[in-house]
Design a binder for these strands. Structure first.
Lengths: 161, 161
DNA sequence: CTTGACCTTAGATTAAACTCTAAGGTTTAT
DNA sequence: ATAAACCTTAGAGTTTAATCTAAGGTCAAG
C-alpha cells in the first residue's frame, strides 16, 4: 500500500496529478486509511502505469478513460464492442508506428550522411534533407509523375533513400 | 504557387494555422503577390508537410522550430552540432517506437483473445489484461523477484505474452 | 459589381492536462 | 512537540496549439 506521495514519487508524477486523475475518473485509490489518506495497492499502480504508458504513446486522457471505462460496467458491454474498440485503437497505434518509423529513417539517414565534424554545417542541411523526403516519396509512389525540377544537395542525395 | 487557402485545403489545416506558424517562425511563404497575398511554393509545401509529420509524431512546435532553425543560419552551426541534435531526436523517436510497439502488442494480444461475439464482456476485460502487463513484464525482467500473488483472468492468460 | 477569398493588427476564447494557491485541519515520523 | 506529509474544497494560473472575432480594408472571378 502506497500513500499518494509515495506513489507519485515512484511513478514520477505529482500528487496533484493523482488527485486530478481521481477527480476525472481515471484512477481512484482502492482504499483509504482510517484517517482518510489515499492508499494505493499494486493494481492501482499497474493502472497508473497503464495510464502513463497510454499517455506517452499519444492517447488523450479522454481516450484512456474510454478504454478504462469498459471495466466500470463490463456487463453492459458486448464482447464485440470491446474487440471493436481495441482494434480501433490498435489501428491508430499502428499508423503512429509507421509515421514514427518513417521519421526515424529520415533522421537516421541524415545522421549517417552528416560528417559530424567541427566544420560549418552549410552543406549539411537537415531541412533540405527532410524537404526532399516528400518529393522522394512522391517519386516512389506516383509512377507517372511530372518531373518537378527538384533541387538536391550533395548531402541529401546520400542522406535519403 | 499556392495561396493560403489553397495550401490550407491541400494539407488539411486552417489558414489561421498557417498564419500562426508564420508568426511563430515555423513557416513563411517564400513570396507575396503584388497585392500582399501569401504565395507558397513547393519547398514551402514540403516544409509544411515536415512540420505536420513531426507534429503527428509527437514533437512540440518548439522542438520543430529547433530542428528547422538550423536552416536559418547554417553557417553558425558546426556539423557536429547538427549531428548531435539529429541523433538526439532520433533517440527520442526510437524510444517512442518501442513504447508504441509494446502497446500495440498488448492490444493485439487482447484482440486475439477476445471472442468478439455478442456476449457480455464480463470475462474479457481490457483492463485486467493491460494491468497484468506490467506484472508480466516485471516477471520477465526481474529474474529474482518476489512472488507477487498475481490475480489472473482466464482471458488474460491467453491474451498476454 | 458583388461575393468570397484574402490582407492587417490585436486581443479573446478554447481545450487539454495539469499545477498552484488558499485556508483550515489531521496525521505521522523523528 | 514540531515539521513534513497528508486531508478538504474551490478556484486561479499555466502551457500548448490553435481558433475566433473584430474592424477596416484590398483583390479576383463570375
Amino acid at each position: 500500500m502506497y500513500r499518494i506521495g509515495e506513489l507519485a514519487k515512484q511513478c514520477d508524477v505529482k500528487a496533484d496529478t493523482l488527485r486530478f486523475y481521481e477527480k476525472h475518473g481515471l484512477l481512484a485509490p482502492s482504499t483509504r486509511s482510517e484517517s482518510g489518506y489515499r492508499l494505493y495497492n499494486q493494481d492501482d499502480v499497474a493502472r497508473l502505469r497503464f495510464i502513463l504508458r497510454a499517455k506517452a504513446v499519444g492517447f488523450t486522457l479522454n481516450e484512456i478513460t474510454e478504454l478504462l471505462s469498459i471495466e466500470l460496467d463490463k456487463a453492459n458491454w458486448a464482447c464485440a464492442d470491446v474487440k471493436g474498440m481495441v482494434d480501433n485503437k490498435l489501428e491508430q497505434v499502428q499508423i503512429k508506428i509507421a509515421e514514427l518509423t518513417q521519421f526515424a529513417n529520415s533522421l537516421q539517414h541524415l545522421s549517417n550522411a552528416c560528417c559530424g565534424g567541427p566544420d560549418s554545417a552549410e552543406h549539411c542541411s537537415i531541412l533540405e534533407a527532410l524537404e526532399s523526403e516528400d518529393k522522394q516519396l512522391h517519386a516512389r509512389n506516383e509512377t507517372a509523375h511530372k518531373a518537378q525540377h527538384v533541387k538536391h544537395t550533395k548531402t541529401v542525395k546520400a542522406a535519403l533513400t
